[in-house]
């Protein structure tokens, strides 16, 4: 079973080819890091996977079901989320609770189990004490942490994270990667993370996808030349 199956994906923005010949899979239990230099269209690739953009060639298939044959739940943290509207009238608690809605709670009240999950998620990023703060009053790093807490509150089958640790200190980053690794190994969650922290994250990830530019191409054309299986480091 593959949570994500990308086959020969190509994408062009207006007339400009950005991605070509991209193929990879993310399976349950995979912890995949996606790297590439600035402007390597990493976010564009994620947006193609999520269906926010349409590939010009090839295909992206997201598994409709998880390992328990239930509807696949995706947790997404976008790159811009830390820049969210400072005036958005919401407390930290309200925002993180909204992560539970997609677990079949759009029209139902949140139960005790949901509230527990929200508390655990906020505690895991050290933001429980700040739960009654307005989100607009938080610093960039704190906003990033509550975005992560929101995703953990969702408890998704597949995490798609676009540079989620921007603005976080080294210790918080390591704790976060540890938590992701625990989720992939113990709970068979699929993880696809765009990152610049190659060295830090390679101790936790088991696959590495790197977007590199074709030298012989006259345009800004990127293709995936390496997809290395990383050996797991002993934890």
């Amino acid at each position: 079973m593959h949570y994500i199956d990308v086959k020969n994906l190509a994408f062009q923005y207006e007339e400009e080819p950005l991605l070509e010949n991209i193929s990879f899979r993310v399976n349950p239990g995979d912890f995949v890091m996606l790297t590439g230099e600035n402007g390597a269209a990493k976010t564009t690739l994620l947006r193609n996977i999520l269906g926010l953009l349409k590939p010009s060639k090839g295909s992206v298939q997201l598994s409709p079901k998880n390992l328990d044959a239930e509807k696949l739940v995706i947790g997404y943290v976008s790159q811009q989320v830390s820049a969210f509207n400072a005036g958005f009238p919401s407390t930290v608690l309200e925002l993180v609770q909204s992560g539970r809605y997609q677990k079949g709670k759009w029209l139902k009240r949140l139960g005790q189990e949901d509230k527990e999950q929200v508390r655990r998620s906020l505690e895991s990023v050290g933001m429980w004490e700040m739960r009654h703060k307005k989100i607009g009053e938080l610093s960039g790093g704190q906003k990033q942490r509550i975005s992560i807490a929101r995703v953990f509150a969702t408890d998704p089958d597949l995490f798609i994270l676009d540079e989620p640790t921007t603005g976080m200190d080294v210790r918080s980053r390591e704790e976060f990667y540890q938590l992701l690794k625990h989720n992939s190994e113990k709970h068979k969650k699929g993880i696809l993370i765009v990152t610049h922290d190659h060295e830090e994250i390679r101790n936790y990830a088991n696959k590495h996808i790197e977007l590199v530019r074709k030298e012989d191409s006259p345009w800004r054309c990127f293709s995936m030349d390496s997809c290395k299986e990383l050996s797991r480091q002993p934890s």
């Binding site: 995706i74 969210f84 909204s98 029209l107």
Partner: peptide, 21 residues
């Protein structure tokens, strides 16, 4: 009453709302 939760997510971030189905 029925759609305040989806509308909350939609207004917070459209991409997040789309990903949530």
């Amino acid at each position: 009453f029925f759609f305040r939760k989806p509308m909350y997510v939609l207004t917070f971030d459209e991409d997040t709302a789309y990903t949530a189905g």
